[in-house]
Design a protein around this nucleic acid. Structure first.
Lengths: 223, 223
DNA sequence: GTCTATATAATGATAGAC
DNA sequence: GTCTATCATTATATAGAC
C-alpha cells in the first residue's frame, strides 16, 4: 500500500488517494490543492474530480480508507506494558508509517476521523488498563474509562508536539536515540513516580473542595 | 480589551485585530478571509491591508499582541499546587478568555506563537516543579526540565481535546460541573497514583533495555 | 478512462475618490 | 483615514475532444 516506486500498478483512484494522503500529511487539507495532489499522483486535475466528485469527496475517501486500514491492524501488542501511544503504535506497525503524518494532521484539524481515532485509542487504552490492572502491572483507577480518555488526550498531545518536544530537549528529531531516550525515560518516570507527593489534592477533590477555583464555583461558559 | 459592545471607542487597527483574533479563534487562519475579518470588525476590506499591509502582516500583529498581552500577566499563582494547564491559566485570568480560542488554534497550527507559548509554559511548569519539590508537594524528578516539557505536552493535549474529552465523558461542555469534576478527579488521580504499579519499566530503561527502539543507550544528563 | 481547456467563484491586494 | 471599485491570481469544478 502507498507504493510510490517506479513500477506503479495501482489503479488511478488509488494513486490519487495515496498522493492525497502523502501531500495532506505534510500540508493539511486547507493548504493542499487538487492540482498539487494531482501533480503528486502524476495525473491531470480533471481525474481527481472525475473519480472522487470533489475535493471533499476525496477527503472522505481518504478518511474512510485510513479507518479501514487501521481496522485491519488488530495486532496491537496488548501484552507489553507500553501504552498505545501513536509512537508505539506506529513502531509496532511500520507499514502504517506513510499514513502517520496524515493521522497527525487529522488530529490537529479535528473532525470525524479525529473523533473516530480518539475513540479507538480510548477503547484500546481501556482494554490495556483492564489487562494491566488484572496482571498487577497497572494501577486500577477508580474510573478506568475516564482514565483511558485522559491518558489518550495526553498521549496525543505528546504525539502532536513531538517536534516541539525534541526541540525543547535540545534535539531536532524526537526519534533520535539520545532525545528519544531522554523523552521516554521522563515519561515513564512520570507514570512511575507520581507528581503529587501525597494524596492531599485527591482528597481535596473527594471532600468536595475544588482546588482550581477559589470560590468553589466552576466556570459557567466558554463564550 | 477585545470589547465588542456597542460603545466601541477602540481605534480601527485594534478593532480589526480583535476581530481577527475572534474569528481566527473559531476558524483558523487558513479558512479565515480578509473580507470575513473586516466584516466582523465592521470595516471595509481595504482598511485591513491599509493598516496591516497584508493578511500575513495582520497575523503577525495578532501573534505579537497575544504575546504582549500574556507578558503583562505575571500573576500566575505559583503558590497553589495546580499545574499551569491552559484551563487553570485561563481560570486565573478570565480577562484572557476571549483569546483562548485563538491560542488553541495557534497551538493546533504550530508556528512561532505556538513555540513561544510552549516554551513559556515549560518555564512556568519547571518553576512550579522546583517550588513544589522544595515544598515537598511535588515529586523531584531526575530530569526536571524534561519532566516540565513532557507535562506541558500532556496538558496541551488535554486542552486541545477538551471538547472530545467532554464528549467521551458523556457531556457536551468540559467545563460543565459534572463533566469537569469527573475529568479533573481522574487527572489528579493519575498524577497521584502512578499508572505503573512498580518500577519495572523505569528499571528496564535504566538498565539499558529500551522497550521500543531496538538499539539504545543511556543518555547523558541535561546540560 | 484520460486529458486539455475552460467556466465560475473567491481570494489577497491595490488604485483612487472623498 | 476611510471607503468603493477593481485587478490579478488562484481555487474548485466541469465540458468536451480523444
Amino acid at each position: 500500500m502507498l507504493n510510490v516506486g517506479s513500477n506503479d500498478d495501482r489503479a488511478t483512484p488509488a494513486r490519487i488517494r495515496d498522493a492525497a494522503i502523502s501531500y495532506v500529511g505534510k500540508h493539511g487539507w486547507d493548504r493542499a490543492t487538487s492540482r498539487q495532489i494531482a501533480a503528486e499522483a502524476g495525473v491531470p486535475v480533471g481525474l481527481v474530480n472525475y473519480h472522487f466528485g470533489s475535493k471533499d469527496g476525496l477527503r472522505i475517501a481518504c478518511d474512510d480508507w485510513i479507518i479501514a486500514a487501521l481496522l485491519e491492524e488488530k495486532t496491537m501488542p496488548l501484552t507489553t506494558g507500553d501504552l498505545p501511544t501513536p509512537d508505539t503504535f506506529i513502531a509496532a506497525h511500520p507499514e502504517l508509517l506513510p499514513i502517520s503524518d496524515y493521522i497527525s494532521m487529522s488530529m490537529r484539524a479535528g473532525g470525524h476521523l479525529a473523533d473516530h481515532l480518539f475513540d479507538s485509542m480510548v477503547e484500546l487504552t481501556r482494554q490495556m488498563l483492564e489487562v494491566g490492572a488484572d496482571e498487577g502491572t497497572f494501577h486500577a483507577y477508580d474510573d478506568p474509562y475516564a482514565a483511558a480518555v485522559v491518558l489518550v488526550a495526553y498521549s496525543i498531545g505528546a504525539s502532536l508536539f513531538g517536534d516541539t518536544i525534541a526541540r525543547s530537549l535540545g534535539g531536532t528529531d524526537l526519534l533520535a536515540p539520545d532525545t528519544y531516550q531522554r523523552y521516554v525515560r521522563t515519561a515513564v518516570e512520570i507514570f512511575t513516580r507520581p507528581l503529587f507527593a501525597d494524596e492531599r489534592y485527591l482528597n481535596a477533590l473527594d471532600t468536595n473542595v475544588p482546588p482550581v477555583s477559589a470560590k468553589g464555583e466552576l466556570h459557567k461558559e466558554k463564550e
